[in-house]
């Protein structure tokens, strides 16, 4: 897909609420890059601004509710997904995008996350994954790596952490991709693919929190943290969000066309276990019955039988 480059100034004017700028985010915070990628994806896809709506959780990424020039609801901690579920079911014509953090989606929101994935409801969930609870001052989240320091793991994190992509796939999400703020172009591509995909899409967006995570774990500047993404992440799979043979897959995916529940793209994530490398790109895509489409069939069937 061609990548049209929209001038930042025009992007801002169209998609952000000027009177609420500048943002509150710290200098070097990665959230802005993810927001920018989201807006660029929306622009590239030519989505109708009136019919694209946001359900937003609580946390640093939650503050985006002030800035997005769309119908947006700033919901409760962990609860953006069920709000989005009701909204999408009530009006399936809406393009519903969920902005959530790693704690918001996988700690307090964990139950809603796995069930929204299981239902394969056509929502796009963007996880602003900085591995920390930034808004409240730097506590650990289910995405904080083992050994990492936080204000509530002052001796190092001793719990395991979720791989958001694996969790999403296991729970039933049919489009799962990951990228980072360093790989901003890829991030835009996978967000566009996520929005287009007719099913539950998850984008695990690695974004740096230099002020809390970075400082506590001596990761240096925001730029240094982004270079860290560059060094740690390894590109796998197609980069444009389309179906196709996933590079790095161990022979089990590629081209399955029965349209049932066979994945049309799948990266073997286990091979990156323990390597210290993080696979990024489109990691999983499948076509399975989507909730609002299935419910429409139920309506047709009952209305027909009543007639």
């Amino acid at each position: 897909m061609a990548t049209a480059i929209m001038h930042a100034k025009d992007l801002r004017e169209k998609y952000l609420v000027g009177r609420n700028l500048p943002t509150i985010w710290c200098s070097g915070c990665g959230i802005g890059t993810v927001i920018s990628a989201t807006m660029r994806a929306i622009e590239r896809l030519g989505l109708a601004q009136q019919e694209t709506v946001f359900c937003i959780g609580i946390g640093c990424s939650g503050y985006s509710s002030r800035y997005v020039n769309f119908d947006a609801t700033h919901t409760l901690h962990g609860r953006a997904l069920p709000v989005a579920t009701g909204m999408k079911l009530a009006n399936p014509k809406l393009k519903v995008i969920v902005l959530t953090g790693d704690g918001d989606s996988m700690a307090i929101g964990g139950n809603h996350f796995i069930h929204a994935a299981r239902r394969n409801i056509d929502l796009t969930t963007i996880i602003f994954n900085n591995g920390i609870y930034g808004m409240t001052g730097g506590q650990y989240s289910p995405a904080t790596p083992f050994g990492a320091l936080s204000t509530t793991s002052p001796y190092g994190m001793i719990e395991g952490d979720f791989d958001a992509a694996k969790l999403a796939i296991a729970a039933g999400a049919t489009y799962v991709a990951r990228s980072s703020t360093y790989h901003a172009q890829q991030l835009t591509d996978i967000i566009a693919g996520a929005i287009t995909h007719p099913g539950f899409s998850v984008v695990d967006a690695l974004c740096q929190c230099p002020n809390h995570f970075g400082r506590l774990n001596k990761q240096g500047t925001a730029a240094a943290m982004m270079r860290g993404y560059r060094d740690q992440c390894v590109r796998v799979g197609p980069t444009d969000g389309t179906a196709g043979e996933a590079a790095g897959a161990t022979g089990e995916s590629a081209g399955a066309t029965d349209g049932g529940s066979m994945p049309v793209a799948r990266v073997d994530l286990d091979r990156y276990e323990g390597t210290g490398r993080i696979p990024i790109g489109l990691l999983y895509k499948a076509i399975r019955p989507e909730l609002t489409a299935e419910y429409a069939k139920v309506r047709e069937a009952t209305e027909a039988s009543e007639a």
Binding site: D71, P82, M87, A90, L94
Partner: peptide, 20 residues
């Protein structure tokens, strides 16, 4: 929709109502 829990149910209701 039968949601995964009571909280999800209440939140879904709010979302649907926001959609009119």
């Amino acid at each position: 929709i039968q949601m995964e829990d009571e909280i999800g149910s209440m939140c879904a209701v709010v979302g649907a109502s926001l959609a009119g």
